[in-house]
Design a binder for these strands. Structure first.
Lengths: 336, 336
DNA sequence: TATTTTCATGAAAGCGATTTCAATTGCTTT
DNA sequence: AAAGCAATTGAAATCGCTTTCATGAAAATA
């Protein structure tokens, strides 16, 4: 007992009009006499007709679907962007095909290709690193691509971000002003440009301005996880650093908990500032001072840009930089 | 300079074969002479032909896309399920259209309908409550639906869950065995059957077995959030409860932090057990004893079931119950 | 009233694949 | 060498909708 599907043809026949007319009323085309529209609408209602989006997509060459490439949905940072993306997409009647890439270059390219095969009207890409391969794929794709929370140092692709370098610079400068001389920097993989080219740059700029020496022994590369933080803590403690800027909230939580459990007081012996202002920063004790980012908005703005591109409109600015803030919590001392 | 798309027709012409043959080689149909296959493959390569999934979907009536309805991607619990779903989907060459429903009945119905319009081959639904309206929509949908981490007391729709009632019963029994007489229960909305019909039932069963009186003043209904927890804590403290079972990890974290800040020691004055074993349970101090659930697997198994249904196979069991565990951490005392 | 314009509508050609069915080809088997 | 079969292949219909173009009807202009 396969369920019978009602097609536009059935509606046309029942309403004694042509398919073209039915199509017009379904799509809100004004060139239909009110009486006709009403008649067609009644039949649609009666037959419970639902337009087939696939057929529509084939005929119109627009799928009203956008692809979203995300490293991992379970990562709260990216999930927050995804939420902003989906809300705006829904507002504009688009749906989201969401795929996890695990940040793996090869997978990212694959996924992008299957999305293009599905005829998505556009793509929002989130990831930690854009390499040449990917950049080339973006270029050959026939649908527009926008980066969300993702930096491309070459700036070829439209993107929405905060100024990571400035945020780190400001955070580290704060630490310096409170008298710290040895400030550690705990980041994710330096192969990712957000770390190597933005956060590190901000860090160096802060040191430079204060005429503090740069010591690469204070730069730590670890995973984006709680456990990575707990493992890293003794190393940081040994370095003699009295403050640390951390690139990931869970990592920061690990560092804090491990510090306290090993008798290192936070913030007295070690001040900690982290990057993403997730709920984690409020749950730890002490709570963690953090850069704040408008996560939802980064996604939302990226999606808005994409809708423009999908409608062949010009972008006001190709690279959007949203404002960041710094939420002071208990893992840092108050300014003097 | 619109990018020119290569169609199956172009390949057929260049390879001097029919579209049917090209279609066969693309789809791995064995009825093609090896030499022909090779020739076609070469042309495909040369022209960089990519089959149009929309056209394919229209012709074959299968979109190789499944819809996923999720309350909120930023909720780590559901996001974990989603990850399991996507991984298995990818394994079976399906893509995921992901939409947030905010647990709102009307929105859920809307979303389900747009998914059906997009001709998804199946749907995985996650939510906190299934009402009659939704149940009716599932029934009239022409694609199969599977519930993941979502209970339907009527059991009409295939689903994957743990035994929530048993898990709560076991947790509460543990508390009782350690001598607690007044055990609070902090849940999300009681309008949701997971709370009203499962967790509450488990709680009552534990009390019953121990011949402890049931007091509905010890049942608290709050939001699934950290702040809801901090607000709830003084109320629980006033009740005289010496232990609490909490339905959400962030809420539990809020209760714990607020307790400690108001001088209530955890676990000495208040033992806490929570439900979802997210990273939050490891970050708080004390860390939180929790029911453990195979979140990823719940999603993965649900997707596996869905693939069977989409291929008209019979399900071994319609209602799958995966095993849970209890991770003992510092918010409870050790057994005596 | 005759002539333009504007409106509403329908016919039919795609969109880019899959799939059925018939035709052809190439081997085997007598 | 003729007949029989299986393996390949192609022609053409179809999927359900959009969209162009032509046409007839109605309204506006002269």
């Amino acid at each position: 007992m396969e369920k019978q599907t009602v097609t536009i043809y059935d509606v046309a026949r029942e309403a004694a009009v042509s398919m073209a007319t039915v199509s017009r009323v379904v799509n809100g085309n004004p060139n239909v006499k009110p009486a006709t529209r009403k008649k067609v609408l009644a039949v649609i209602e009666r037959l419970d007709y639902r337009p087939n989006a696939v057929a529509r997509g084939l005929a119109s060459k627009r799928s009203t679907t956008v692809g979203v490439i995300i490293p991992d949905v379970t990562n709260i940072y990216f999930a927050s962007l995804a939420r902003g993306i989906d809300d705006i997409a829904m507002m504009y009647k688009y749906n989201i095909i969401l795929t996890n890439s695990d940040d793996a270059g090869e997978q990212e390219v694959n996924v992008l290709n299957t999305l293009m095969a599905k005829q998505v009207d556009g793509v929002i890409f989130m990831g930690n690193h854009i390499d040449d391969k990917l950049r080339a794929e973006f270029k050959r794709a026939k649908a527009p691509v926008v980066l969300a929370g993702t930096v491309d140092p070459q700036g070829d692709t439209p993107s929405v971000n905060i100024d990571y370098a400035a945020a780190v610079e400001e955070s580290v400068t704060n630490l310096i002003q409170r008298g710290h001389k040895k400030i550690a920097l705990a980041l994710g993989p330096l192969s990712q440009s957000i770390n190597a080219e933005y956060r590190l740059t901000g860090y160096k700029r802060a040191l430079n301005k204060a005429k503090l020496p740069y010591d690469d022994k204070l730069i730590y590369e670890a995973g984006y996880s709680y456990d990575a933080g707990t493992k890293l803590q003794p190393v940081i403690a040994d370095s003699g650093a009295t403050a640390v800027f951390v690139g990931d909230d869970e990592m920061a939580a690990g560092i804090i908990n491990a510090s306290i459990e090993s008798g290192v007081s936070v913030p007295d012996d070690l001040e900690v500032i982290t990057s993403n202002d997730t709920i984690v920063t409020q749950i730890t004790r002490p709570s963690i001072t953090s850069i704040t980012q408008p996560l939802y908005d980064i996604g939302a703005v990226a999606m808005r840009m994409l809708t423009k591109l999908m409608n062949d409109k010009e972008l006001d600015e190709k690279t959007v930089t949203l404002p960041y803030g710094i939420a002071r919590r208990a893992s840092t001392k108050s300014a003097e």
